[in-house]
Amino acid sequence: MLNNINEFVLIIVPLLFAVTIHEVAHGYVAYRMGDSTAKMAGRLSLNPVRHLDPVGSFFLPIILYFSGSPFLFGYAKPVPVNFANLYDYRRGTIFVGAAGVVANLICAVLSGLLFQFLIYAASLWHGSFLQSLVIPFLNMLNYSVIINLVLAVFNMIPIPPLDGSRILAMFLPESLRIPFQRIERYGMIIIILLLMTKSLGKIIFFFVTPLCNLLLGT
């Protein structure tokens, strides 16, 4: 049980950081492109407390972890964005929508680079106290790569209200854009059904697995 708790802590720390950086990226890009809603709400902060959602940041990861789910993810409270305030609505919507995904990809790459550096360093410290000290950080970085990649790929799925749907909507003709955006009211139901049938997991890991192998050097 203690090992499970220790492992969960090693997972929840990078998860909280990943969902925080995802939302801050949305708010920051929106601010730079003309909308200060997130800034005025105090959401351009790396303090996770400002972004935590009781269900998405705690209960969902706990349920997924202890139910033996093949992947773990969560979400934070969405950063408020008034897209009507953006200098260029179409371009701004694309950039704001892509910001969280790009932030997670950057975190995954940096975590992977640091992971491989520490693997090399640990090989030089073989049998020493430093090697045992670095193992928890290696585990945390390993989870950071996986979690950030899962979040990036998951959010790029073009199902409203996920980020990928906002980006896709900007490339659709208006006659299709409005009906597509109306799907948002059913979006979470669609996502839950896809999760229950495990088809969403297969889509996510189709992209995540090779990227993990590349970044973790496996």
Rank of each mutant, 00 (worst) to 15 (best):
I167D: 09
K39H: 12
D163M: 12
F205I: 08
V9Q: 08
Q181W: 06
A76V: 13
N148Y: 01
L72D: 05
G56W: 13
L16M: 05
L162D: 06
S67G: 00
M140V: 14
N213E: 08
L151Y: 12
L193I: 06
N139W: 11
N3A: 15
E7S: 15
N6M: 14
S165T: 09
P179T: 02
M196D: 04
K198I: 04
H22R: 08
L114M: 15
H126S: 05
F83D: 05
F66W: 04
S132A: 14
M1Y: 06
F73Y: 02
S175G: 03
L214S: 13
D35L: 01
S69Y: 07
N85E: 13
V153N: 02
F73T: 01
L193V: 06
I146H: 00
I147H: 07
Q181G: 11
H51C: 01
A30G: 06
L60I: 11
F117G: 01
G112Y: 06
Y120N: 12
S123F: 13
I21N: 04
G34L: 06
I178C: 02
M196K: 08
I191H: 03
F129V: 04
L138G: 05
P54C: 03
A152C: 03
V79T: 15
A169F: 11
H22T: 03
L149M: 08
Y87K: 14
N3V: 10
D53N: 12
A18H: 09
K198V: 05
L216W: 09
T37G: 10
A76Y: 00
I106D: 00
L72R: 02
N155I: 15
F137L: 14
R182W: 13
P14E: 00
I167Y: 15
G187I: 06
N4S: 15
A18V: 13
I178G: 05
M156K: 05
E174K: 09
I157T: 01
T20F: 04
P14T: 01
G187H: 02
L138M: 14
V19F: 12
S132G: 12
R182A: 01
T197Q: 09
I147Q: 07
L200M: 08
S69P: 01
A84S: 13
E23M: 11
I192H: 04
C212G: 07
P158K: 13
L118C: 07
G217Y: 09
F58Q: 12
L105V: 10
H26P: 08
L149N: 00
A99W: 02
I62R: 08
Y87D: 13
D53W: 07
R182F: 10
